[in-house]
Write a protein that binds this DNA or RNA. Sequence first.
DNA 1: ATTTTTACTATGTCAATCGTAGTACGGCAG
DNA 2: CTGCCGTACTACGATTGACATAGTAAAAAT
Lengths: 121, 121
Amino acid sequence: MNSISSDVIRGYNDTIILFLLLQHPSYGYEISKQIKTLTEEKYIIKETTLYSAFTRMEKNGYIESFSSDKEGSGKRRTYYRITDYGRQYYKDKCSEWNLTKEVIENFILKEDNYGSNQELS
Amino acid sequence: MNSISSDVIRGYNDTIILFLLLQHPSYGYEISKQIKTLTEEKYIIKETTLYSAFTRMEKNGYIESFSSDKEGSGKRRTYYRITDYGRQYYKDKCSEWNLTKEVIENFILKEDNYGSNQELS
DNA sequence: ATTTTTACTATGTCAATCGTAGTACGGCAG
DNA sequence: CTGCCGTACTACGATTGACATAGTAAAAAT
């Protein structure tokens, strides 16, 4: 178990993607690379997960898509930009994260504490 | 969105339950109450979630069940105790949690930072 | 005596992730 | 100029954990 199981991140992939779209509009491949580098390869999102997140979030109104039709460079891509509603959702998820962290940490022992169980009411 | 969405906790219900079984063997109703009080009602586990977690974890060998057949008090209950394998699993999940926390926090902005986006490589 | 709390079981649905596969274009090396 | 690697996706089905709903039944409280 050296890398992160996906069930853990489940429910936060959307937040991760939205965070990156908050900087500037982007597309699948770039987002995927950014997650990889930002987490120092600790988390590598699966392509299918990523693209289905895009679809879901567009349907929910968190993001909007547009096509790159610049004649200049490379392949045609589908870009996404975050909406105001998406920005709000992102903020809510951040608050939720702080609450969740608090809750879960009630049940996590640090290495040091293994064996010395604390009081329970 | 005043309480915790369950998708967040998904994958950590087992860990939460195992933490409580680490103290002493217990059963559904008690576990459920303890989660409620320990989190100050911020998280209330659904009964179906709890009992299906028991079933799954027993199948996986993290816990063992036994019946209360004391003549003394109350209704007959199904108790669960954590196994050595369960203890190991719990420890692994704690490490995983610390890693996950690290990863996710790369993508969470504090209230203060909204608007002032940081540099991305 | 009846309601509430305790202590579950059964069944089926839903949603997010993931495995596998396949398509197709662009750029570069040989 | 050709084949291969990297880019940029789409399609489809399986799996899993959480949850809604419903029901059972004994014990404790009123």
